[in-house]
């Protein structure tokens, strides 16, 4: 088990070592492909500031979207009319590319923090909604009969049957959204920002500061991984009975 756990670390180190060697050996210019060591030295306090900004936007957008999507799913469960009416609209919003909507968000909410939060939220909303709707209906008809035989009221059925059955679905969605949230925030920053990893990537690519560009790319990956792992940590403690994965 421990050996398998170490495998990704070993492969990661191997990849970076090969990369470093290749760049030095073939004397690849920095503006095309900087060596990992060069990228690391480009990581400074400014990068940390940009990372923190993007991370906070992603986290806020993720949290807001998840809360609203969960609430909407509960409403959909209670009202099939609303589900039938609003679901197509949710799909329409989902299928519209975020890059197309992002300029509008900046126009409405300004170039500051909130337009990025909105972009992150917009991209997180749909997976959580769809999976929660599915998860809340995951308890078999027979389980619901059992609860009816025990004269459970609707709240008890929700709290003690539907919600726990929904949790694996919810966490699967939260994992998807957590990585999407960072994408949303960065797309928002591309359109108009003075800070954040998206801004850093845009500016550094325009100046051919490829080492800074790479540091921005890695930082955004780290932001996504941290969020994803945090959700996974909570999942293991909450959905302890679930052995397999729910997609």
């Amino acid at each position: 088990m421990r050996r398998i756990g170490m495998a990704p670390v070993a492969f990661g180190i191997g990849l970076f070592a090969a990369w470093e060697t290749a760049v030095r050996l073939f004397k690849i210019p920095t503006y095309l492909l900087p060596a990992p060591s060069t990228i690391l030295s480009a990581a400074d306090r400014a990068l940390a500031g940009h990372l923190l900004m993007t991370f906070s936007e992603a986290l806020a957008g993720f949290a807001i979207a998840s809360a609203i999507a969960f609430g909407a799913a509960v409403v959909f469960l209670r009202s099939p009319v609303l589900e039938r009416g609003l679901f197509p609209i949710a799909i329409a919003v989902k299928t519209t590319p975020l890059v197309a909507i992002a300029p509008l968000l900046v126009l409405w909410l300004g170039t500051g923090w909130w337009s990025k939060v909105a972009a992150a939220a917009l991209i997180c909303f749909f997976p959580v909604l769809v999976n929660t709707v599915r998860g809340l209906k995951a308890a078999d008809q027979e389980y619901r009969e059992l609860f009816r035989a025990f004269k459970a009221d609707e709240w008890q059925e929700f709290r003690k049957l539907r919600l726990p059955f929904c949790l694996p679905y919810l966490f699967a969605a939260l994992k998807i959204s957590s990585s999407l949230a960072v994408v949303g925030a960065i797309v928002g920053e591309f359109v108009g920002a003075t800070q954040g990893l998206g801004y850093l990537i845009m500016v550094s690519s325009a100046h051919l500061d490829t080492d800074i560009l790479f540091s921005g790319i890695f930082a955004s990956a780290i932001a996504g991984i941290v969020l994803f792992q945090a959700i996974g940590w909570f999942e293991k403690r909450t959905v302890f009975w679930q052995k397999g994965e729910v997609e």
């Binding site: 078999d140 004269k151 459970a152 302890f240």
Partner: peptide, 21 residues
């Protein structure tokens, strides 16, 4: 089917009807 709740142990499953009551 037994229809036990997988997140509850034996005692908690047996107590379910009392909780609901």
């Amino acid at each position: 089917k037994p229809l036990l709740l997988p997140w509850r142990n034996t005692l908690q499953n047996v107590l379910l009807p009392k909780e609901l009551e």
